[in-house]
Design a protein around this nucleic acid. Structure first.
Lengths: 337, 337
DNA sequence: TTTATAAATGACATCGGTTACATCAAGGTA
DNA sequence: TACCTTGATGTAACCGATGTCATTTATAAA
């Protein structure tokens, strides 16, 4: 691999001139510039960007902590990040943490060891982040999708409470009174906010909240299936199920069908995220559309602004949601409470 | 940020000793080692790995070229890569190329500019790769999932021909004679191999190949829907549809249902990949399971072996497939040819 | 022509580690 | 005691670029 010295020697100039000819061409005379460029081509010179990064102390790498890349929603978010990062000359170091704390730590360390300039995390409330921030560490970090509690950190999020409230209202308007919610893990702020929105809508409509209709899941297809089956086994089963993501909704749909019930005739199902599969379920799924790619690009933009010192106070960017009404929700069956 | 010199000064030793105390502890006396470690802790020293990488000329970064991270199958592959890379102390630089050649080029350049040690690509036949290899370039590259034509490059792949053949045989055994194939883009080697397997099975069973039953798609849900609709409009429609991936199969299922037909009563549908959603379609999808995560981990292992000079001739690793029989395929309807 | 000024270029230190080589002290052997 | 070996540590070159500062060359003004 040829280096800048080879070029300098061949062109008969100093290394400084080569560097300038490539970085600030206007500081170099046309004649010399031509000589240099010819030499560059001749020896096939490619600058060693590792050296540049080392010298400059800027890596232009961003660490992305993703609980599971195999999650359709996150995949879209990553896609958005990737695009924005590329446009700004940054690269993404992808870390599939599988919610493993040790893994998260190990990747976060990449920022401390100067392998990356900053970090984006898609999972909130992970202990390392709390420690980091409390220690007053200067780790440039942005939080996306889930919001971190009690921590001042630039964040891009959805108004989950409002979105859950909107969906619940939609079901209430269809005449449903017994609306179940298949929620995520209790410790997730996402869950907390969405449950809050759900309860707000219920109480605004004077519908009593029933603890037994709040069924925990873990965002997988399987857990949606399981939760729906359990809900149907209740003495007084719900007429609608609002799932905290589309995967669980798809699982729920299967469970409901296996119980011999009709959607939405007997029971309505709603999801959250609007993944591509949502339009292809039978019946197509009513859900909340999130601008996933925009989550990613916004997070990257915020992080780069933060890294490059263009960000003042930690902003919270709230992205819009959209209730997509498809065929999985319909009027509550008559004769049922 | 403290550096190795700060540590040396505080510990009252030379920088070389600090370096040794951390890298080859057995070369340093216990007493000095303790002093050094204390100093390290005291100043909060974190080695600048960018400097190390620069000095060593090894980045321990791998570029991964993915056509679309938002594809469920690729997401699993990436997950497997990530795991294997992490285990071996490597990081993944993720590149969502969107099949854009310029993007691919720009990312491949990262290897030339010493930002990464090697490259994995999941899309075959991209022109840059061809150029690279033809130019006799020494870019360490591994090909996964799709096999590169006419290019000697370590590869990990499925025996797509055999898999397609197996699925077609399954449909033939169920009595189907008019079996359509919803295929991918014609230029894809994947498509070529799977179509070949399909044709082999047909001719082995003395079933004439009908060009009109070969319908092109692009691996998206929408294209599956479109293709199925078109196939059903044929004068003599098929009784089975074999789709080249599960997304297209899911799209096809919707199209078939919208035409008022029953699956598998009127028509059977088969997919390929066994993505998580395949078990949750209605009816659950018969498909070919691919060890996606293993694709990723094998590709990474091969690439690291190649980089570290442990690989002789370019191997081709063939991973096993598994025909998962679910409820979307059944006996051909009686009375139909 | 001389001088002041601007433009172009070169020499060299620098970033933060690693490592080959030199040095030195301690212990063992003849 | 002299000599050699071994182990522990220090000195300094080095990786490949950038950027400061000094120096040379070209240009314009007097």
């Amino acid at each position: 691999m040829s280096n800048i010295r080879d070029v300098a020697q061949l062109a008969g100039v100093s290394v400084a001139t080569v560097s300038r000819a490539l970085q600030q061409p206007d500081l170099v005379s046309l004649k010399t510039r031509t000589k240099v460029l010819t030499a560059v081509k001749q020896v096939g010179y490619k600058p060693n960007l590792m050296a540049v990064k080392f010298r400059s102390g800027k890596t232009r790498n961003l660490v992305v902590l993703v609980p599971t890349v195999a999650n359709v929603f996150f995949a879209r978010v990553i896609s958005g990040m990737q695009q924005a990062a590329h446009d700004k000359g940054y690269s993404l170091l992808l870390c599939n943490t599988l919610a493993d704390e040790e893994m998260e730590q190990s990747y976060a360390r990449m920022v401390h060891t100067s392998q990356a300039d900053g970090l984006i995390q898609l999972r909130a409330n992970n202990p390392f982040a709390q420690l980091e921030m409390k220690a007053g560490s200067v780790l440039p970090m942005v939080n996306a999708c889930e919001v971190l509690d009690r921590i001042a950190c630039p964040t891009v999020l959805l108004d989950n409470k409002a979105a859950a409230c909107a969906m619940t209202e939609h079901l209430l308007e269809l005449g449903h009174k017994r609306i179940a919610m298949i929620k995520g893990p209790a410790r997730s702020p996402l869950t907390r906010d969405r449950v809050a929105g759900y309860r707000d809508a219920l109480s605004a409509a004077d519908v009593a909240f029933d603890e037994s209709l709040l069924c925990p899941g873990d965002f997988t297809l399987q857990s949606g299936h399981k939760a729906a089956t359990e809900l149907l086994a209740l003495p007084n089963p719900p007429t609608a199920m609002f799932c905290e993501n589309d995967e669980m909704a798809i699982g729920a749909i299967q469970g409901i069908k296996q119980a011999g019930l009709n959607i939405p005739g007997d029971i309505s199902v709603a999801g959250f995220d609007d993944i591509s599969f949502a339009a292809f379920t039978d019946p197509p799924l009513t859900t909340i559309a999130q601008p996933a790619e925009e989550f990613g690009s916004t997070a990257v933009t915020l992080l780069i602004d933060l890294i490059e010192g263009r960000l003042g106070k930690a902003p919270k960017v709230i992205l819009p949601f959209d209730l997509i009404q498809r065929a999985s929700t319909g009027p509550a069956p008559a004769g049922l409470s």
